[in-house]
Amino acid sequence: MARETALVRSLVELADTLVSDFDVIELLTGLANRCVSLLGVSAAGVMLASPDNDLRLAASSSEAMRVLELFELQAQEGPCLDAFRTGEPVEHQNLQAGVGPWPRFASGALEAGFRSAFALPLRLRDRTVGALNLFNAGQTPMTDEDLVVARAFADLAAISVVQHWSTIENQLLNEQLMRALDSRVLIEQAKGVIFERAGIGMAEAFDRLRSYARSHNLRLTKVAQDAIDGSLDPAAWGP
């Protein structure tokens, strides 16, 4: 009962942090720590896919875990990588140095004090965005109940990551929109400056601004800024 209460509280707290501006690394670190406290594993870590689909370390519950996960990435073998590549859970595996599916990884894990490993993909519908690594100093597999909890954590991590990515994408679009608008404002002001200095029409002022930028291989906004600052060569608006 106490564990269920703690679990529900964890899920609610984690879901709460999803609401608006959230730090995805902080959330995933909290999630890794909760895996340790609620699942009875020795260490937990989260890896995320980069835009070019390479796994990168995102969060770890301990320094030993962080080092081992980096080793896993370097060796390009281990439960996390398998879970990510297949999109399927990697069953509990007792580790033996130099043997099994990940001989090099197993040696490193044993050296770090872990004797069994388990991993879940972070999936949202068809998209695998990373993996959750769970390592144990002992060799007892998790119970079915533990597995359900681990799955819930992995799902929550996947949702938070996808949401984080779409937030970044939206922020970028909004910034692009504002930057495009800023550029236009500069150009419109520069048109006014040249209009007055050269005594020509607005359309003509723009043509001269643009042809000067082209013939001198300069960005239009740079030429516009110079016109506004008064540092532009008067030849720019000469006929």
Binding site: V185, Q189, G192
Partner: peptide, 21 residues
């Protein structure tokens, strides 16, 4: 409507008054 005519005018007036936009 981004009121670009206002930006145009600010450029013109900056020259007329010898001030920043």
């Amino acid at each position: 409507e981004f009121y670009f005519v206002v930006q145009n005018a600010a450029g013109v007036v900056s020259v007329q008054l010898g001030v920043t936009v």
